[in-house]
Computed example of a mutant assay.
Amino acid sequence: MTEVRLTAWARGRVQGVGFRWWTRARALELGLVGWARNTADGRVEVVAEGPEDSCVRLLELLRGGDTPGRVDGVVERWSEAKGGSTGFVER
């Protein structure tokens, strides 16, 4: 299975609503490592590494409408996994 890195930026009402905690829980369920953090412009940046199908599923969940708050859009970037992360943390 190909290991990949997904970097996704969620915009909408995603800060202060439990979005990073929810993202962490979904990522851990999928066996992914990485982090989620608030950005200064009001978005949440998510970096997840692991099997490509698990990263695709996380992206689907981020866009799925069952997240805390309100997601107006998600932009993603795909790259090779860098490794070195353990667990999934809120930053």
Rank of each mutant, 00 (worst) to 15 (best):
E3R: 06
V14F: 08
R20C: 13
V89A: 07
M1R: 13
N38F: 00
E49Y: 06
R26N: 09
E45T: 03
T2S: 15
V14G: 01
C55P: 03
E52Y: 08
A10I: 00
K82I: 13
G87S: 11
A48T: 10
L28W: 07
A25L: 12
K82D: 05
S54H: 08
L61R: 05
D66V: 12
S79Y: 05
C55A: 15
V56H: 03
G34V: 00
G64V: 12
L58C: 01
E80N: 11
E90P: 04
M1W: 12
N38P: 03
E49C: 13
R57S: 08
V47W: 00
K82S: 11
V89D: 04
V14H: 04
W78C: 06
W9D: 05
M1H: 13
V47F: 01
A40M: 07
V4E: 11
L62G: 00
E90I: 15
R20V: 11
R43V: 01
L62Y: 03
P51N: 15
A81R: 03
C55E: 04
E52R: 13
G69R: 06
L6A: 04
V4K: 14
S54F: 04
E45P: 01
E3N: 03
D66S: 09
P51S: 15
R77T: 15
E29R: 14
W35A: 14
A27T: 05
R63N: 06
G34S: 09
R11C: 05
G84E: 09
V56S: 02
G69I: 13
T86Y: 03
L58K: 01
V47R: 01
L6H: 00
R57V: 10
M1S: 14
T86H: 14
S79L: 10
T67C: 15
L32G: 02
L62S: 00
G50F: 04
V47H: 02
P51V: 11
T86M: 09
T2L: 15
W78Q: 02
W35L: 08
R5D: 09
W35C: 10
G73T: 11
R70H: 15
G42C: 06
D41L: 04
F88Q: 03
M1K: 13
V75T: 15
E90R: 11
S79C: 10
R63C: 08
